[in-house]
């Protein structure tokens, strides 16, 4: 790729992104009143869902998801190690 072509492409790139951002920021200025009204929450104040249980589930889910992902990664590492050992094992002897 020639440097002139590269430069023009980068310039066009930057120009379009700034134009798009400018348009988006203009779009960001609220022309219409916000569509969703604030929710009426008074009806739910008396409701007695066990907040502690909800929070407990959230914490368990966090630990489960992170722990599960870490365990999955560890299993992948073990599988890689096994492959590496298999490769090292015959010490370069070509086998079918």
């Amino acid at each position: 790729m020639g440097s002139g072509r590269f430069r023009s492409r980068v310039l066009g790139f930057a120009a379009a992104i700034s134009l798009g951002t400018a348009g988006a920021v203009w779009a960001d200025a609220p022309a219409a009143p916000s569509v969703a009204p604030a929710r009426d929450l008074s009806a739910y104040k008396e409701e007695t869902l066990p907040g502690g249980a909800l929070a407990g589930i959230a914490y368990l889910l966090l630990l489960g998801l992170v722990g599960g992902y870490a365990a999955w990664t560890a299993k992948k590492v073990e599988a890689l190690q096994a492959q590496l050992d298999a490769l090292d094992g015959p010490a370069g002897d070509a086998k079918p």
Binding site: G12, F13, A16, I17, L19, G20, T21, G23, A24, W26, A27, D28, A29, P30, A31, A32
Partner: peptide
């Protein structure tokens, strides 16, 4: 138009990004 202009500009912004 004043009420829609924000949404239309959002779509214009998306199209500009997509074109590049």
């Amino acid at each position: 138009l004043a009420e829609m202009q924000g949404w239309l500009m959002l779509m214009v912004g998306f199209d500009l990004l997509a074109v590049v």
